[in-house]
């Protein structure tokens, strides 16, 4: 059963409450700090631990990766494909290193598993493309967003 209360006329017109609400709106509209940024011109600063686009770290121009396959082993999305090979200056290196970036879930476990500090996730987050290409070795070897 509804409880009926007798309110005054002024109270029933809600004028005071409307004014109060409008005050909050005006306060936030003109005086509160702005959350939205003008994206392409303005950019937000992300944490150094942000997990974005991958790259393979190189030391003196030679990739750190030895194709030990720990990253494809640990990868929950199964998006890393490596073919190992041998060359004169390095016993084992990745001949092919592909990341199917559309499958990647950016969990960062590959980076954690890597014993050679080779696969890294940079803070780059602008990765939209018009095709479904995978990241190949030469793309990953560019020290993009090196940290």
């Amino acid at each position: 059963m509804l409880l009926k209360t007798k309110e005054s006329l002024i109270r029933r017109m809600y004028l005071v409450d409307v004014a109060k609400g409008l005050a909050i709106t005006i306060k936030n509209f003109f005086f509160a700090p702005k959350i939205t940024i003008q994206y392409p011109e303005e950019r937000r600063k992300y944490s150094d631990r942000f997990r974005g686009q991958h790259y393979i770290k190189a030391t003196n121009g030679v990739e750190n990766c030895t194709a030990c396959m720990l990253c494809p082993t640990v990868c929950p999305a199964e998006c890393i494909h490596i073919v190992a090979g041998e060359r004169p200056d390095k016993e084992k290196y990745p001949v092919q290193f592909e990341i199917d970036i559309l499958r990647c879930c950016f969990c960062g476990m590959c980076e954690e598993a890597c014993p050679k500090d080779a696969i890294k996730l940079s803070t780059i987050y602008e990765m939209s493309t018009e095709s479904r290409d995978v990241y190949d070795r030469s793309f990953l070897m560019e020290q993009r967003g090196n940290k």
Binding site: T66, C68, L70, E91, K92, P115, K116
Partner: peptide, 9 residues
């Protein structure tokens, strides 16, 4: 300590 390279690993 070359287990990442070694096939026996």
């Amino acid at each position: 300590l070359d287990c990442p390279i070694c096939d026996q690993a």
